[in-house]
């Protein structure tokens, strides 16, 4: 199964433009995402990362000639966006509202909650959860519908460092189990290098740079030679000066 889904293309973006008022945000983005592929999208604040994600999510209408997604999408946002007036299980089940009967919804929602380790929180109200727990519920809700493309909009940036590490592991685990294509929008270079098959940098409204990471994830350490090389290149593409460059500039 895995080899079949990985060959199919899930999303295709061609010469995509978008502007807010007079500000052009996306100026001709081209992007293909293959089935089951994990793509990280980096960029400085205001570079249009989230705008591209919104186009793929169908939140901002785009012409079919520019943005085309085959299959089901789902989104997990920076804030979990759980409906506070629906219990945790019901929140997860919302993703199945049009596709499954109530009993099946409850069963699949419970399974999804189990996958994120929150079986016992099913009957709680979302406002009683911690930030990390709520974000895990949000992930369960995004995955319970078995999406072909999972869009993650900086989902870990509001979490503390330790919770974030746990979430990274959980996301990889869930990705391996459900095999959706993933587009992770983030401003965290190390996060991108830990998780993704492919890293993209959005600059001046275009996807200017791209790195493929063949290293298996268990071997990805901060000292890995290829990764640390890519890390420097990504930081440079983002316009971050390294210590050496700063020293050279000062001299």
């Amino acid at each position: 199964m895995a080899s079949v889904t990985r060959t199919a293309r899930v999303a295709q973006v061609r010469d995509h433009h978008r502007s807010y008022g007079d500000t052009a945000v996306l100026q001709g983005v081209d992007l293909d995402i293959a089935g089951g592929e994990f793509v990280a999208l980096l960029g400085r604040s205001g570079s249009g990362k989230s705008t591209l994600l919104r186009s793929l999510a169908g939140l901002d209408a785009s012409p079919a000639s520019e943005v085309q997604v085959d299959g089901r999408t789902s989104v997990s946002f920076q804030e979990p966006r759980l409906l506070p007036w629906r219990r945790v299980t019901e929140n997860v089940g919302l993703a199945l509202l049009s596709t499954a009967r109530p009993e099946e919804r409850a069963r699949r929602a419970a399974t999804a909650l189990g996958e994120v380790g929150l079986t016992e929180k099913g009957e709680e109200w979302p406002l009683s959860l911690s930030g990390g727990q709520a974000q895990r519920v949000s992930l369960a809700r995004a995955l319970v519908s078995e999406p072909d493309l999972l869009l993650l909009d900086e989902p870990f940036s509001a979490l503390d460092a330790l919770t974030r590490i746990e979430m990274h592991r959980l996301v990889l685990q869930l990705w391996a189990r459900h095999e959706p294509a993933v587009l992770l929008v983030t401003h965290d270079v190390d996060e991108a290098l830990m998780l993704a098959d492919r890293v993209l940098v959005l600059d001046e409204g275009r996807l200017a740079h791209e790195w493929t990471l063949p290293t298996p994830r268990h071997a990805r350490t901060p000292t890995h030679p290829h990764l640390s090389e890519v890390r420097e290149q990504v930081l440079a593409a983002l316009g971050v000066q390294t210590v050496d460059q700063k020293a050279a500039g000062a001299a």
Binding site: R81, L83, L94, S145
Partner: peptide, 20 residues
Amino acid sequence: RFLEAARTLHLNRRQRLRHV
């Protein structure tokens, strides 16, 4: 943002009314 989340969950208009 809740309405947006409901759209990403593919809720139709009637379901968004009822649940959001």
